[in-house]
Amino acid sequence: MNLEELKKIREKAQKDVELRQKGSRIRIVVGMGTSGIAAGARDVLKAFVEEISRRNLNDVIVTQTGERGLASQEPMVEVFEEGKPVVVYGNITVEKAKRLIAEHVVNGNPVSEYAIEVM
């Protein structure tokens, strides 16, 4: 496997890039401060990245942010969706992340039992 293979991916992917640039449908932000990382935020972010890649969700992006100021609820995750309230989830694990992708992102049903705030 070498980096040249990226060119093949590029040709294939360039078609749907235009679509992405119009803006992602959903943005998932994972808190990555010291306490978040210590509580497993890296594994959570990786789980989101893997699920999005595996399901080929072209209109969903995951990014990281700094400390959210609520160390006891880390890892914390915010889900931004156009025209809908922002849902903040707390104490997210790898398993919960997979469920959030399936239920919130794919099926459009926020998982209220993990939510700590809706803004």
Binding site: M1, L3, E4, E5, L6, K7, I9, R10, K12, A13, Q14, D16, V17, R20, V49, E50, I52, S53, R54, R55, N56, L57, N58, I61, V62
Partner: peptide, 28 residues
Amino acid sequence: TIIKGLLDGVPVNHPEVVNFIMNYLDEH
């Protein structure tokens, strides 16, 4: 910077690119 050069505008967080990076890191 090398990867983005090869991708020529396709974002590094595109699902297929992510999959490539995972496999590439696994292998190397």
